[in-house]
């Protein structure tokens, strides 16, 4: 489903080239549960952003569902992100002035889905994520774990092909972190392709497939 081949990504910092992705090839199939680990600055987030079409590689090709998405125009990139990608971040990135429900519905709103349909779809997620009595609360009225659950609901509301989580527990205490991982694994069991970037070996080890990135290269890959 996701086929990266020979992906390179360089940043120029102060006249110096930093190679954040160095000839990376990686294939991820539908329904997989994959963790990406590695030292800080090794390129984990860069890899995730390239998969999520937020960042474009300098060279290499990326096939998403058989379609070459390496050099799409902004408009098509946005549309593809909207339909196929769900992002979860360490810092939640909820919009503070919108309610939990409105935050969850944001991708649908941007895609022009009518309000009634949005309400229906968010209501299902709100209930199954245990946010029933929080739907009208704003992010600053929610706990960290609740915020991340809202963010996950937002990521999956458009039924994306792949769910990309960049250190989803990095900003949570142990128990809410564990709850979030449970939630994500539950989604994966239901068929959701899941990629988690994490520093926490305990979390990383739980994934069926584990990829290690060092200095912009794949140092090890437990499967695939």
């Amino acid at each position: 489903m996701i086929e990266l081949s020979d992906i390179c990504r360089t940043f120029t910092v102060g006249g110096q080239e930093v190679r954040a992705m160095d000839h990376v090839s990686l294939t991820i199939g539908a329904g997989e549960y994959l963790s990406i680990m590695g030292p800080s600055g090794s390129g984990k987030s860069t890899l995730l952003n390239i998969i999520g079409l937020l960042d474009t590689p300098n060279s290499g090709t990326y096939l998403l569902d058989g379609r070459d998405v390496t050099s799409l125009a902004d408009e098509q990139l946005a549309a593809t992100r909207s339909r196929k990608i769900g992002f979860i971040f360490q810092f939640f990135h909820l919009i503070p002035r919108l309610s939990a429900a409105q935050n969850i519905e944001l991708p649908l709103m941007l895609a022009g889905v009518p309000l009634r349909q949005r309400r229906q779809r968010s209501a299902v997620l709100i209930d199954s994520f245990g946010l029933g009595n929080r739907r009208h609360h704003r992010p600053d009225e929610l706990s960290g774990g609740q915020r991340q659950r809202v963010a996950i609901a937002r990521a999956v509301i458009n039924q994306p092909a792949v769910l990309l989580a960049d250190e989803p527990t990095g900003n949570l205490d142990r128990s809410s972190g564990a709850e979030i991982i449970d939630l994500l694994e539950g989604l994966n069991r239901a068929g959701q392709t899941l990629v988690i970037v994490t520093h926490d070996p305990e979390i990383g080890e739980r994934a069926r497939r584990r990829v290690r990135v060092v200095d912009g290269r794949l140092a090890s890959d437990s499967g695939g």
């Binding site: 937020l54 408009e75 990139l77 946005a78 990608i85 992002f87 990135h93 941007l110 937002r154 990521a155």
Partner: peptide, 11 residues
Amino acid sequence: LLRAVGASRQQ
């Protein structure tokens, strides 16, 4: 965030 959840530059 808006870009990540599907907004284009135009939007």
